[in-house]
Design a protein around this nucleic acid. Structure first.
Length: 596
RNA sequence: GGUCCGGUAGCUCAGUUGGACAGAGCAACAGCCUUCUAAGCUGUGGGUCAUAGGUUCGAAUCCUAUCCGGAUCGCCA
């Protein structure tokens, strides 16, 4: 059992024995003792006063005495105002690290042990431009959340819904037809997604010019935007695509193919993968039959022009369109269809959409509609809504070229890591191929950690020149701590010092105890991260652990310690700290090096 | 205008279901490598937790109002 759990149990029992009342869970407050006080865990007795009807100090002393007398793990206690600080015995902490050391998968629930199946949809790019910084946050957040859920024993499907159809794709295609003179990735040496993106930008530029020209001729801007020749052509192209016109379809497949091979490279460089990829071209018709179902049930209604709506004004929202007057579907129609399909096909317990906070309204509506249609699983749809990534200049605008491309950013991280490694001479005696692997690990770790340590729901500012540090609260700092421990482990092997699975010791230093305490909190952290869909909790936790270890490392000797039992304890703690760092970083999708 | 989210040190962020004098990192300054990796460690300075009320033993945390920033309210996705 977790150390904290023992005290929760002890507190409940003592209150019942002393005051004859079984306390409510909300009255039970056990927390880690503040650094400035003596003790391991603190029981806050204020809430208990209404049961004990005594002064805080007296209540705390009574409970302290009871627990000390009945729980051999408890060594001593002290009372400060309404705070009962409890120290557990060193023997107990020793057993704690022993059981952690013996655990197969410390902190993680066995695979699929929860019996729950969860789908996590993330990434969801458009095929008209390369992935940028915003996608990076989405991808690594989605990937980390999936890992965290997996570690909690759920069966997890990571899925990507690629937006491969629609007017924006036609824009790229049309501009390519008109201006590219047959340019391809292989003819130009331009990566596929960038090449297609180039023509998307070209479209926007020419289109903008046409609108301006029409406006200059006296047309209103609104009308000009609808009537500009280029957009009219693009819409015609979309109609031909929907009619599966062979010429258009072939071009579409060809250009999307370029994009996908470009995306593959980017995903690979980010270490992101999916269990299944959905394509909107194959799902966009889903949901249309549901509209009829909704009409039959009277949940939806039809307007005279034939369009179908739902009235959500009673729920504090607006009226929402579900089917256009021409009978074609909109985005939410498809999402209704795919949600139903996925829940039926995979027997999902939960479905998580990792999508930016600008779509909160959309998912609110989606949930409501499905609830009104009678799907009782609608409350198991979660929108993991994350904040925008802004540049120092403000919002990213891909149409105006104010954008940080994912590929460039990753490459820059690698370069920085490489330069720094060279400067420090850390990998001079490592084989170049291996060194490059480490450098990439560190660069990518810096980027991922930087983004994941921030609460997902918060907006963040990203300064490409200054944001990524390799010192302090960073990925490389934590990776370094891991590498440092591995170095100790290697030295131990060189010196023929065996590291046992368990140690027996009755007295240890405060630092050792503190490290064991933090290590023992790992499972709780993994739980909370899943409950809140927040990998930042893992990031902040593992930082605290690494920081504490580095202090310990600096202050004490490990291999040079002469007392054999203390040396063994320090080695076991070191090994388990490294294990937790590795596992915590696995949850974040970050690899850890053996040396750096 | 309605709804939602955010506002904590110069900068980037933590702060568990309300708990002890609000914590890290970066930046600045001062120290520590003949000792297991100095991508490290130690120290100094830096705060009206946006503002004003309220709830209570106790508020950065909960409630109300106000100010600032962002998102959203489309026959776009």
């Amino acid at each position: 059992m977790q150390p904290e759990g023992i005290l929760v149990q002890a507190l409940k029992l003592s209150v019942k024995e002393l005051y004859g009342v079984e306390p409510d869970d909300i009255l039970i407050q056990v927390q880690k003792t503040n650094r400035d006080f003596e003790g391991d865990f603190t029981i806050v007795v204020f809430p208990i006063l209404r049961i004990s009807n005594k002064k805080p100090e007296d209540t705390a002393n009574e409970i302290g005495n009871y627990i000390k007398n009945n729980y051999p793990e408890v060594e001593s206690f002290n009372v400060v105002k309404g705070f009962l600080n409890i120290s557990l015995s060193h023997r107990f902490w020793c057993e704690t690290i022993n059981s952690i050391s013996q655990a197969d998968d410390f902190g993680f629930a066995p695979p699929h042990s929860s019996g729950k199946t969860v789908m996590v949809e993330f990434s969801s790019p458009n095929t008209n431009k390369p992935l940028h910084l915003g996608h990076i946050r989405n991808n690594i957040l989605g990937f980390a959340v999936a890992r965290v859920l997996e570690a909690n024993g759920h069966k997890v499907f990571k899925v990507n819904l690629v937006n491969d159809r629609g007017i924006h794709i036609c824009k790229s295609m049309l501009a390519w037809q008109k201006f590219a003179h047959g340019e391809t990735p292989s003819s130009s040496g331009i990566k596929g997604d960038f090449l297609v993106g180039k023509y998307y930008v070209a479209f926007e530029q020419v289109y903008k010019k046409q609108v301006a020209e029409l406006a200059a001729q006296g047309m209103s801007e609104e009308e000009a935007r609808l009537k500009a020749p280029l957009i009219v052509e693009a819409q015609e192209m979309l109609r031909r695509w929907e009619a599966k016109d062979p010429e258009i379809y072939t071009l579409w497949e060809r250009m999307n193919g370029w994009v996908y091979s470009g995306f593959d490279t980017t995903y690979k460089s980010l270490g992101i993968e999916f269990d299944k990829v959905y394509y909107e071209s194959q799902t966009y018709l889903l949901g249309k039959t549901i509209v009829q179902e909704g009409l039959d049930k009277g949940v939806f209604y039809k307007r005279p022009d034939g369009s179908v709506w739902i009235d959500l004004t009673n729920n504090g929202l607006d009226e929402k369109l579900l089917l256009r007057s021409d009978g074609t579907s909109v985005y939410i129609t498809q999402d209704i269809g795919t949600a139903i399909q996925r829940f039926t096909e995979y027997h999902l317990n939960d479905h998580i959409y990792v999508v930016g906070n600008e779509q909160e309204y959309h998912f609110q509506v989606l949930r409501l509609i499905l609830a009104k249609l009678g799907y009782d699983w609608s409350e198991h749809l979660y929108h993991l809504s994350y904040g925008m990534v802004n540049l120092p200049e403000g919002k990213m605008k891909s149409r105006e070229g104010i954008v940080v491309d994912a590929d460039d950013l990753v490459e820059e991280m690698h370069t920085t890591a490489r330069d720094m490694s060279k400067e420090l001479g850390k990998l001079d005696d490592v084989e170049p191929h291996e060194a490059e692997k480490v450098v990439n690990m560190v660069g990518l770790g810096a980027l991922k950690y930087f983004i994941l340590k921030v609460d997902p729901k918060k907006n963040m500012t990203f300064n490409p020149k200054e944001s990524i540090d390799f010192n302090g609260n960073t990925g490389p700092f934590i990776q370094y701590t891991h590498a440092r421990i591995q170095s100790v482990m290697r030295k131990a092997a060189d010196m023929k010092i065996a590291i046992p699975k368990t140690v027996g010791i009755d007295k240890m230093g405060e630092k050792e105890k503190e490290l064991i305490k933090i290590v023992s909190l790992f499972p709780k952290t993994v739980n909370e991260a899943a409950r809140e869909l927040n990998p930042a909790l893992v990031a902040n936790y593992v930082y605290e652990l690494a920081k504490e270890y580095n202090q310990f490392y600096h202050e004490f000797q490990i291999l040079r310690e002469e007392n054999g039992t203390i040396r063994e304890l320090r080695l076991v703690i070191s090994r388990e700290v490294a294990n937790v760092i590795r596992r915590a970083f696995w949850l974040l999708g970050i690899d850890v090096p053996q040396r750096m």
